[in-house]
Amino acid sequence: MRVYLQGSHLVAMIAIALSVALLLAIRFRPATWRGVVCEAIIANLSAIAAVVAFEVLTA
Rank of each mutant, 00 (worst) to 15 (best):
V37C: 11
L5R: 02
L57R: 05
L22V: 04
L10E: 13
M13F: 01
Y4A: 11
A59I: 05
V3E: 01
L10G: 11
I42A: 15
A43L: 14
A31D: 13
I42T: 13
L45P: 05
M13C: 13
R2C: 10
R27W: 13
L45Q: 13
F54E: 04
L10Q: 09
A17H: 00
A53E: 10
A17Y: 01
A12F: 00
P30K: 09
S19W: 10
R34K: 02
P30T: 03
I14H: 11
V36Y: 07
V20H: 01
I42E: 07
M1F: 08
A15F: 01
C38Q: 10
R27E: 13
A59Q: 03
N44I: 14
L24T: 00
I42S: 08
Q6H: 08
I48Y: 12
I26P: 00
A53Q: 13
A17V: 00
A21W: 00
E39T: 00
V52P: 05
V11F: 01
V11Q: 09
E55P: 01
Q6R: 09
A25G: 10
S8R: 13
V52T: 06
R29Q: 10
M1Q: 09
Q6C: 08
A31Y: 03
R29W: 00
I48D: 12
L57V: 01
L23S: 13
V56L: 13
V36W: 05
I48M: 15
T58C: 06
W33K: 04
L45S: 15
T58Q: 11
V51Y: 05
L10R: 12
A59M: 02
E39Y: 02
L57C: 02
G7M: 05
L57K: 04
L22S: 04
W33A: 06
A47R: 03
V3I: 15
I41T: 15
I26C: 06
C38G: 08
A53V: 07
A50G: 01
Q6P: 00
H9I: 02
Q6V: 01
V3W: 02
A21K: 05
N44Q: 14
L24E: 04
A49W: 14
A53N: 10
A50C: 12
V11W: 03
I14A: 15
A15Q: 09
V11N: 04
I41R: 14
Q6S: 08
I14S: 11
P30Q: 05
V36R: 11
L45W: 11
L22W: 09
Y4E: 14
C38L: 14
S8Y: 06
A59L: 07
S46Q: 12
T58V: 07
W33C: 02
I26M: 05
R2I: 10
V20K: 02
F54S: 10
I41D: 12
L10V: 06
A17I: 01
S8D: 11
M1R: 08
V36H: 08
V3K: 04
G7W: 06
L24I: 01
A15D: 13
R29G: 06
V37I: 11
F54N: 10
L10D: 07
L57Q: 03
R29S: 10
L5W: 03
H9F: 05
S46G: 13
A43G: 15
F54W: 07
